[in-house]
Amino acid sequence: MSKDILIAARDLSVHFPLRGLVFGERPVVRACEGINIEIEKGSFFGLVGESGSGKTTLGRAMLKAAPISHGEIVYSDHEVTYDLASLKGPELKDYRKRSQLIFQDPYAALSPRMTVRDIIAEPLEVMGLTSSREETDARVREIAAKCRLNLEHLRRFPHAFSGGQRQRISIARALVSGPNFIVADESVAALDVSIQADVLNLLNSIQQESGITFLFISHDLSVIAHTCDFVAVMYLGQIVESAPTSKLFSETSHPYTKALLSAIPSLDPDDQHVAQKLEGEIPSPINPPPGCRFNTRCPHAQERCRTEVPEWREMSSRHHVACHFSEELA
């Protein structure tokens, strides 16, 4: 493909073996199975799904923070190309500089015993990116200013900050090593709506200024819709649909995506549309249903869905879906 792909997963699976034996076999949690995604350079890639769908595991695998059981993840910027499965030693250290993670809970992610300056400077010191204290300070100040933290803030400890400010500190820490790729895992889920918009705007402006590629993980489709240019929908360890954001909303093809969209409560009190109800809850990833994994909750499931795994196929340009009947249901 001619597009500039920064990081791509091909047929990726992440399995976690459990303790104990069941019928002589070790049960395995299939957190991700057969994932194919490509993230373009400078894009804001959204990953959406319910809790337990494996979105965080996929995000961590992209950072080589979860074991890759099968398939490959290839990272390639203009300087280096890494195959994450076999990455180790100095190359892995180098990859750590190029990729960063912003956590969900800004209250738990910051050490209460370090000043904000030390928190933001730590990656620089650990990775040996700066040679003198003056250089470190200059870099910290520059990044802090970008995240709208002033010099006064740098001297304080995290407890003195509100949720939105703490999340800005986490963002500054992720940016300080100058990464090309950032995974933002539910980074606004713990914030109030009024603050959430502020953090989303900050992430967007950082992305536009510096061209950093984001993998934005969220359970909230309306947040994803607003920030991301490309969306992948995950269900029980598999990607069921992926498309550019506007296409995903206008030409929704997978019944699960449709259900997610219709479950978002409308702001209009006169909107009488009834949420397309999904029965039951997400099944266990230890024992996923055969055939299409969504068949136990799908309102359109037929015999074929229970036996045959749907193929990952292209509906139109850059719009992929895994459903036997997406043409009929469209």
Binding site: V193, S194, A197, S222, V223, A225, H226, L261
Partner: peptide
């Protein structure tokens, strides 16, 4: 509060915190 909410029917509307 209403302006800071992402709206699904107008994806390009800016979020105003």
């Amino acid at each position: 509060l209403l302006n800071s909410l992402p709206k699904l029917d107008d994806l390009d509307a800016p979020l105003t915190p």
